[in-house]
Design a protein around this nucleic acid. Structure first.
Ligand SMILES: [Mn+2]
Ligand SMILES: [Mn+2]
Ligand SMILES: [Zn+2]
Ligand SMILES: [Zn+2]
Lengths: 130, 130
DNA sequence: TAATTAACGCGACTATGTTGCAATAGCAAA
DNA sequence: TTTGCTATTGCAACATAGTCGCGTTAATTA
């Protein structure tokens, strides 16, 4: 099933690329100039995710975040890294260090989902009254 | 605000303790003999979580899982560990190794949420036709 | 330009989890 | 034991996230 280019897809991808963050559906929709439907945005994101253009992380807030794959080569995807979610400014960043977790014997990992939430450095400073 | 003992609380705690797994609301309700309301179970779990009796993890399926704190002392909680969620049998286990993640300068972590999903050893074997 | 069908918009639907409020029932003091 | 306080519950309503079916639109290719 071949892909087609659409304006909505392009804009979603641009927003993800340019922000450099992991964004959820709502954040993306806010930044869209086009009036793209919610369901469509989800479909775009899931398509990107399947195609390995973006990777998906589920936050400890239960929401799905999508980030443009910057460190991935065509066949080698590297998504065993943590993400930091700031509970103040809501930004979610990728923490690039790839890491390996020792699983019990015989366990077969498929998806890695690591999120640490707290205060980012910017929001930390503001809270400490700077 | 002091706590009171109730049968529902007791049974939820018993189920969590005895299973040794991280369970979500639905799994717990299925195992309850009492007809406890959904909202009540959530409230019980959140209370336990606040009181440090259980810890909460959000799976990459977006659901909240709760596990009895077995390795925690009164004041020292250790929840920086991963969890494994089997996409076949749905079991979620704690992987006891506590680990530390290097955050960028100035970031203040509050919550650690690590989940790896895939096939547990039991389900792996079954899938390979044993 | 016309045909094919991927992608979209809309509405309906399924969770999951939370909250307000009145009723119930622990618990401790009388 | 009885009484009073209020933590906890049940129920209904609500909020939000995400998915899906289906008819329509618009990329793409011939
Ligand atoms: Mn990432
Ligand atoms: Mn755990
Ligand atoms: Zn922040
Ligand atoms: Zn399994």
């Amino acid at each position: 099933m071949s892909r087609r280019n659409t304006k909505s897809q392009q804009e979603v991808l641009d927003i993800l690329k340019q922000s450099g963050l992991a964004l959820n559906h709502e954040m993306i929709q806010e930044q869209m100039s086009l009036n793209t439907d919610r369901a469509t945005i989800y479909r775009i994101l899931n398509r990107f995710s399947q195609d390995g253009i973006v990777h998906k992380v589920v936050g400890d807030d239960g929401k799905q975040y999508f980030a443009f794959c910057s460190n991935c080569t065509k066949d080698g995807h590297q998504h065993n890294h943590f993400h930091f979610r700031c509970i103040e400014c809501q930004n979610v960043i990728c923490i690039k260090n790839e890491l390996r977790v020792q699983l019990p014997e015989g366990y077969e990992p498929i998806n890695f989902n690591g999120v640490i939430s707290g205060y980012c450095s910017k929001c930390c400073k503001q809270r400490n009254g700077v």
